[in-house]
Amino acid sequence: DSCIQFTRHASDVLLNLNRLRSRDVLTDVTILVNRQPFRAHKTVLMACSGLFYSIFTDSLKCNLNAISLDPKVDPDGFAILLGFMYTSRLSLRESSIVAVMNTAVYLQMDHVVDTCHRFIQSSDRS
């Protein structure tokens, strides 16, 4: 009994999904953040965010092709988190970290919230 584990497979799939997003191929939803549109794949959004999981598992909402987020959500913070969903890389800058963390709380991305919190704490100490 043996198997071959392709160790890059998850990241290769994610890279291709991000290419599909950038080319708007099979994207199936527009997320509006303060009227700024972001195209994405519902499956990726719901795999990464508790909020989107709740929305797209709701039979009344799962077929929506446009969703407006709370107007308090920062579009730049959302853009950073959407990039993270498709790359596994989270851009952390002092200027944007609070917006990213607040947006991650809203999107129910708990591990990202914890990471932002630790980053802020370590910045405060240094």
Partner: peptide
């Protein structure tokens, strides 16, 4: 009996180009 796993470090699928 243990399972033997061989790790393949190379690309696992084709790469979708940025643009056609």
């Amino acid at each position: 009996q243990g399972v033997t796993t061989i790790k393949e470090m190379g690309r696992s699928i084709h790469e979708i180009p940025r643009q056609d």
